[in-house]
Design a binder for these strands. Structure first.
Lengths: 171, 171
DNA sequence: CAGTATCCTGTCCGATACTG
DNA sequence: CAGTATCGGACAGGATACTG
């Protein structure tokens, strides 16, 4: 991820990408969610070059997604443990996973997500925590938050004026 | 995104990244969800170089996220309309957005997601469509799907043997 | 086992100029 | 307005060799 100066680092999604925008970052996190914590576990699982893994791990640690923790004194050995921030990234991976399974699985899924206890497959969707209403591109909008800048307010106003059914291809 | 040969393109999340792994792709989609459809709308909104925008738009169109549709005969003008596949990507953007707002907002959010009708902020979470149970990294696992390969089965077995509470940093 | 050190290639991206 | 053409730079990622 090159440094980005776009006015749009005001958008949380854009900021998120500055954190995990590299290809491998997300896959490393995916494996971390499976319980992987060690260098070689990641390396073998991903088939990634060690220098690259080292770089990405360092970056993710710096970004506060992992904590590097000593698990053996001699020889000194570290493991990479997800922080709260890292763990909270889970929905992103799940969303990506679900989308991939629906739209990119070449005739049938190779992998499914399942409840840990019942082992029954789950079908992940986004809902509002309060109302439990499903969140889709048609029923939510962006609104200014407490720290919205002047420019952001203007932008949001102009968006409101947009043809709202732009994404109504074939429906 | 360089071509990846890792055995792990078997994972839907990895395949998804081959589709939208570039930085701009997701931001373009984000804007598309706001109702943007035209070249210059994207260009101005993102502050992206036209050649790059052209490339990304072509790639996303090829990947089946957008459909390029003629909206004016003379002069010939195209707009980029989200397909069903593209629209289904929304949860990923929302998840990214929510995570960014929680963990990267420097004292207060500039933007919030809200219900389109009531304009009340929503708090996006992942749940199982059936049971409505919340999906977290601790209560779901990967299981083999109908098309799981031999290698995948072996891999999943080995994961099961992993210390299951690896991500229990400070909790 | 857990990395670091080098070298190399690809390409993503930025800037800019130009066209119907 | 909606792009294409060209050039250059930065860096992610690959391959490989080496260390405690």
């Amino acid at each position: 991820m090159q440094p980005r100066k776009s006015a749009f680092s005001e958008c949380p999604a854009a900021r998120a990408l500055e954190c995990v925008g590299e290809w491998w970052s997300i896959l490393i996190l995916r494996d971390a969610f499976q319980g992987f914590t060690r260098f070689d576990e990641f390396r073998q699982s991903l088939g990634i070059a060690p220098n690259i893994l080292s770089r990405r791990l360092a970056h993710l640690t710096e970004a506060g997604m992992f904590e590097r923790r000593l698990y053996s004194e001699k020889p000194p050995r570290h493991e990479y443990v997800l922080t709260a921030k890292g763990r909270d990234f889970f929905p992103v991976v799940v969303a990506l996973f679900a989308w991939g399974n629906t739209h990119l699985a070449p005739k049938g899924e190779a992998l499914l997500l399942a409840d840990r206890k019942t082992e029954r497959p789950v079908d992940p969707i986004m809902v509002d925590a309060g109302s439990k209403a499903r969140i889709t591109s048609t029923n939510v909008v962006l609104i200014p938050g407490p720290r919205a800048s002047r420019g952001m307010l203007k932008r949001l106003a102009s968006i409101k004026a947009l043809r709202p059914t732009a994404y109504s291809l074939e429906e």
